[in-house]
């Protein structure tokens, strides 16, 4: 049985994460991840994931790579892409205690996108987050040690600028 305070903290972390993306705030996105070197974010399709094909749409396997992801978006790509808003909807599905203060969680997601230039909203991707989360009992807060966004959507309807 997972304590309610832990589920609440995980739900709160998800809310921070999706708010960061929906507000295009990459520093807040980074703040949802553990400060440890091993922190990682991967975005891939269920087809790749289920067939042990490691190539992903985004593959940031260290804290440095996560910070570089933010640099891509805010500095390197600035002014070249057609900007779009996202709106993420998530639901916590399961939490398991894996010891050492860490928890494995699954959260389903659906993400809509609305290009600035058309204003027409479409589905960007649906799928499930597979997370390893570190819980800090002192302030009942938690951070992602790893977040893997696995999309049912095998063919994305456009190129991704922002993580999912």
């Amino acid at each position: 049985m997972i304590a309610a305070k832990i589920k609440d903290a995980i739900t709160g972390l998800n809310a921070n994460y999706i708010s960061a993306l929906d507000n295009k705030n990459m520093q807040d996105w980074l703040a949802a991840f553990s400060k440890t070197y091993e922190a990682s974010y991967i975005c891939t399709s269920a087809d790749n994931s289920e067939n042990d094909l490691p190539v992903s749409m985004m593959y940031d396997d260290s804290r440095n790579r996560l910070e570089d992801r933010a640099t891509y978006i805010t500095d390197i790509w600035a002014g070249t892409f057609q900007d779009y808003r996202t709106r993420h909807f998530t639901q916590l599905l399961s939490v398991a205690d894996i010891g050492s203060g860490k928890f494995a969680a699954k959260t389903s997601f659906q993400v809509f996108f609305t290009p600035d230039e058309t204003g027409v909203s479409e589905i960007l991707a649906v799928g499930v987050y597979e997370d390893i989360i570190e819980f800090n009992p002192k302030d009942c807060s938690c951070l992602f040690v790893s977040r893997k966004a696995v999309t049912d959507t095998g063919v994305l309807p456009r190129y991704l600028v922002y993580p999912i």
Binding site: R65, W77, T80, F81, R158, Y159
Partner: peptide, 21 residues
């Protein structure tokens, strides 16, 4: 190769995302 393939030249790659745009 996995790290480079995922991050460099694809539809969301560091030096190629702008092509998609």
């Amino acid at each position: 190769r996995v790290r480079q393939s995922s991050n460099l030249l694809g539809p969301s790659g560091l030096v190629s995302m702008e092509d998609a745009s």
